[in-house]
């Protein structure tokens, strides 16, 4: 497995992780996907991680076209969960359910339960704006606001009416985003003047400024060169100490490098209308997915037989 972790503490942390998380999943070897939630039931008892999300039979439909169906799995705190799979398998659609960004597409409808700390995010009384205050998101293409670096970071805290010294909030967010040293002398310049990799780290820092619990990343490195990608991966490993991260990626090596747990999705051609519907094949500790997956399709995918 291609390790690209530069910091020793991270490596130790990850190895410790792999050791503990391997225990329950070993018991579920060869079991169908749905049973993974039962493994989750055993998790707290095993004294490892607490689930922040619990997806229960989640499906998304655009108009009458289903995009992804019957997804059931938990997402644990202070872990990086990677969603991988071929194009059109519904990974991005699914991650956008986790902070209700799918609401922006009028035709999209979500079935099943997306529980966040035990609360179904799709309950009627839930306000999507409140959901997004707790759950940050980083997009495929860096999308800084056409404002100064400072104002990009300060935008979130300002609209949320956060108390405190804005200069300190901005500095702390930029430090957590590993960007402070590069930009501290040009906070008042336009963010469009930054490189692509810096812009993406700015977007991460911007998400951190509002102190979310979870950070969702939808292919955050797909528009970046390998060096910028490496820096963002290092940053993710640092951030998981304090945040939970869900990342959609097309890059299997990236999933292998950074994630603790990997969910593999696949797309079925269903019916005569050839609707493409994505669904979950398996969710396991990353090491298992890449070395000894339960499902033959996972193995075929990670070894490059298709996709």
């Amino acid at each position: 497995m291609a390790e690209r972790v530069t910091q020793e503490p991270d490596r130790q942390e990850r190895e410790a992780q792999a050791a503990t998380s391997a225990v329950p999943s070993a018991g579920s070897d060869g079991q169908p996907v749905a049973l993974q939630t039962e493994a989750h039931g055993q998790k707290p008892a095993a004294g490892t991680r607490e689930a922040i999300y619990d997806l229960d039979d989640v499906g998304v439909t655009y108009g009458s076209v289903p995009a992804v169906r019957e997804v059931t799995f938990p997402i644990y705190q202070h872990e990086i969960t990677a969603l991988i799979g071929p194009s059109g398998c519904g990974k991005s659609t699914l991650i956008r359910c986790l902070n209700r960004m799918n609401d922006l597409i009028p035709a999209a409808s979500v079935t099943g339960k997306v529980s966040y700390h035990g609360q179904n995010l799709y309950d009627d009384e839930i306000d999507p704006v409140q959901v997004r205050k707790h759950i940050g998101m980083v997009f495929q293409k860096p999308n800084p606001f056409p404002k100064t670096i400072y104002d990009n970071i300060a935008f979130g805290p300002r609209v949320l009416g956060m108390d405190g010294n804005m200069d300190e909030i901005v500095e702390s967010a930029l430090r957590r985003g590993a960007l402070w040293d590069e930009v501290k002398d040009r906070l008042k310049t336009n963010a469009f003047g930054m490189s692509g990799g810096q812009q993406q780290r700015l977007c991460i820092a911007r998400a951190l400024a509002t102190s979310p619990d979870v950070i969702l990343m939808d292919e955050p490195c797909s528009a970046l060169d390998p060096i910028s990608t490496g820096r963002i991966e290092d940053l993710m490993l640092e951030l998981k100490e304090n945040y939970s991260i869900v990342i959609v990626t097309h890059n299997m090596q990236q999933a292998a490098r950074v994630s603790d747990r990997t969910a593999f999705f696949i797309v079925d051609l269903k019916g005569e209308e050839s609707h493409r519907i994505g669904h979950l094949v398996e969710l396991s500790p990353t090491e298992k997915i890449f070395t000894n997956p339960d499902d033959q399709r996972t193995e075929d995918y990670v070894t490059g037989k298709f996709g």
């Binding site: 960004m101 922006l104 409140q130 205050k133 999308n143 935008f155 979130g156 609209v159």
Partner: peptide, 27 residues
């Protein structure tokens, strides 16, 4: 004004009105 700007703003927990007033209209 690209929709990525709206998404970025909404993802930070801004309301639709805040997004329009502070991002879309200035743009």
């Amino acid at each position: 004004v690209p929709s990525s700007i709206r998404e970025g703003s909404l993802a930070l927990g801004a309301t639709q009105w805040q997004t329009i007033w502070k991002q879309v209209l200035p743009g």
